[in-house]
């Protein structure tokens, strides 16, 4: 039985993803397309929100993946710090832009949804605020990666930033909840979708969630492969110089 850690070897990782990536990519496209088409065209309009509610099929999975991507980066950073597997650090690096885009999709679709529902593009609601803050954390993380030349130093520093950032991101989340309650008591805009969600919505929503998860996986695998190749190329150039 092969150990899980064997996939931390770049070569093994590349060989495995060689055949795995097309499968995951196909599955991602199929599942997401199914979920979205199902959600957009084969669900009834909500009696209160009309057809605008259907943006939920993009909004919720994107928001979910925005958070999950950070958690994945956190785990990958820990693996790098503890076990020093390069693939892990590179996977964290590859996940960050995907997470950032997911956060942006979540924010934009939220604004588009909020405009007809609440009559405003933006509200300083704790949940919205938290997502904006999450976006700042993604930006900082990506900026730090791009500022450092040496890949190992970059991996170390960003991993520590990810750990510290996670703690502060959670703190910020609670601070945002506290802050809004504290200032605007009573004036609440509830964003909680699916408080009474019917299975007619739930089933396509879950399909979309799985689809977005697969999209994330596809992009991270592809990104990690690119990063591995980039490092390999750097190493080859270095070899040339040494020889």
């Amino acid at each position: 039985m092969a150990s899980f850690w064997e996939y931390a070897n770049p070569l093994k990782f590349m060989r495995t993803t060689d055949w795995l990536l097309p499968i995951v990519a196909t599955a991602a496209v199929l599942v997401t397309a199914t979920g979205l088409i199902w959600g957009f065209f084969f669900t009834p309009d909500d009696f209160r929100q009309g057809s605008t509610v259907k943006i939920v099929f993009i909004h919720v999975p994107a928001a979910m993946m925005a958070i999950n991507a950070w958690v994945m980066m956190l785990v990958a950073s820990l693996v790098w710090l503890i076990r020093r597997h390069h693939v892990s650090a590179l996977a964290a690096k590859a996940a960050a832009p995907v997470g950032l885009v997911m956060t942006l999709i979540g924010l934009v679709t939220g604004a588009v949804w909020g405009q007809p529902m609440w009559g405003t593009w933006w509200a300083w609601d704790p949940r919205l605020t938290s997502f904006l803050i999450l976006m700042l954390f993604y930006l900082g993380y990506i900026a730090l990666w791009s500022a450092i030349d040496d890949p190992d130093t970059g991996a170390d520093l960003t991993a520590v930033l990810c750990l510290v950032g996670s703690v502060f991101a959670v703190l910020s989340r609670y601070a945002a909840i506290f802050w809004n309650q504290g200032l605007h008591q009573g004036a609440s805009l509830s964003v909680a979708p699916g408080t009474r969600m019917d299975w007619a919505y739930k089933a396509p929503l879950y399909t979309c969630m799985v689809g977005f998860g697969l999209i994330f996986l596809t992009l991270v695998l592809a990104g990690t492969r690119t990063e591995i190749r980039a490092r390999r190329m750097k190493a080859l150039v270095a070899r040339e110089r040494m020889a």
Binding site: L136, G140, L144, L171, W179
Partner: peptide
């Protein structure tokens, strides 16, 4: 510049409270 980008998000909880 990078320092500001990294540090300001970390300042959020302190600022809020």
């Amino acid at each position: 510049l990078l320092l500001s980008l990294l540090v300001l998000p970390l300042y959020i909880p302190t600022l809020v409270f």
